[in-house]
Nucleic acid binder design. Structure first.
Lengths: 205, 205
DNA sequence: ATAGTATTTGACTGACTGGTCAACTTAATA
DNA sequence: TATTAAGTTGACCAGTCAGTCAAATACTAT
């Protein structure tokens, strides 16, 4: 039980600012100002700006986790889990657009891509978190196999990589097009095509 | 015919530095130093750092164009064009890793994603260039349809969006994983699955 | 109350930021 | 040779950068 919420205020402010803008364009002063915290306190809780960025990433993940857990609940048929996830992502992106004025995409992708060439530790963190998300896909695919809906001979990890890469690609396109379109029909339809399962919901695109 | 190559030296230096690192982490001074050009000359040719970034993007595109033209030559069967493009991309990424020490991904994706929230003009430029690349996919798909290899009822533009998003996703993963793996089998196999054509070359993944 | 610890503050550093500018050199033209 | 324009230079700006630190304050346990 923390005595104060200064640390969390800094993490929240940084998460927001970095997701909207970028790591490089947000200064420690900006973050402190947004969090209404003085510079000295920043360096009491974090040893560097990079250190705070790492904490922000973990914070993003923890905020997203309940939604993944709900979407991929064992009570839900595996294919529907992907549909549910796509719906949640669309909703979150729409919220961000409303709040921040533009579509923000995936924070791990944006930050990870920006910093990959300079801060190995951020690149690794993004990579590691991506691995956590892939576990959801893997579990769902296992169940699809058990139900005979998915070819038994495929390599599940490789297939999960593709599902994830496609999702990240759509998130990237959402940010760069400043549009929610990639999150609408494209995301779920693409996932189904990569999974290589029958998917006749509504139309084919 | 320009009298000097100062402008191009600046563009080349900026392209390299920004691709390896990021827009935010590269200063005008860094670029000038790398190009062996003084600051005043920089602002003789470019009205701002953003202006140079835009010129760099156009430069990236022009460098890539001959490779796309070759891969998507009408003399090549349409499906093979994708295979050829995947091979070229792998080769270029391997070169970059050798030269710069790490996998760099797609310059438009990295720069576009980083700056999307701050510099509308860079976001738009990335978006516009993406549109140019999609034309290659669209043309190839038209021919696939003519040859009866692709379902006639699909929306080609939507399908091209998905192909492109998947490619960008793999490029992003390459950068974040600092690995060439996403460019190897995953890229072409994923494209074929999204296209929804028969593709039995070697194994299924 | 007191001692000790955790937290907060804001002034400070020195390097660096993107950008400006007036003076200078070079090359082409008339 | 004189004129003009294009290109180049390096000093210079005001502001910002990430990070430091000693002192002040608040909290906790005795």
């Amino acid at each position: 039980m923390p005595k104060t919420n200064t640390k969390q205020k800094l993490i929240d402010a940084a998460s927001e600012l970095i997701w909207r803008n970028s790591y490089g364009s947000v200064s420690v002063d900006d973050i402190c100002k947004a969090a209404d915290v003085r510079k000295g306190s920043f360096y009491h809780y974090f040893k560097s700006k990079v250190d705070l960025a790492l904490a922000s990433m973990e914070n993003y993940y923890e905020q997203s986790k309940p939604f993944f857990d709900e979407a991929f609940s064992p009570t839900r048929p595996p294919l529907e889990r992907f549909e549910r996830l796509a719906a949640i992502i669309l909703e979150k992106q729409a919220e961000a657009r409303e709040t921040y004025g533009h579509v923000c995409g995936c924070p791990f992708a944006t930050l990870g891509s920006e910093m990959a060439g300079q801060e190995e530790i951020i690149r690794e963190k993004a990579n590691e978190i991506f691995g956590r998300y892939e576990k959801y896909y893997i579990q769902a695919m296992r169940e699809l196999m058990d139900e005979g809906l998915l070819d038994q001979n495929i390599d599940i990890q490789t297939r999960a990589n593709k599902l994830h890469a496609f999702g990240m690609g759509q998130a990237l396109m959402g940010r760069i097009q400043n549009s929610l379109e990639p999150f609408k029909r494209d995301l779920i339809v693409g996932w189904m095509r990569i999974l290589d399962v029958q998917y006749n919901e509504k139309e084919r695109a």
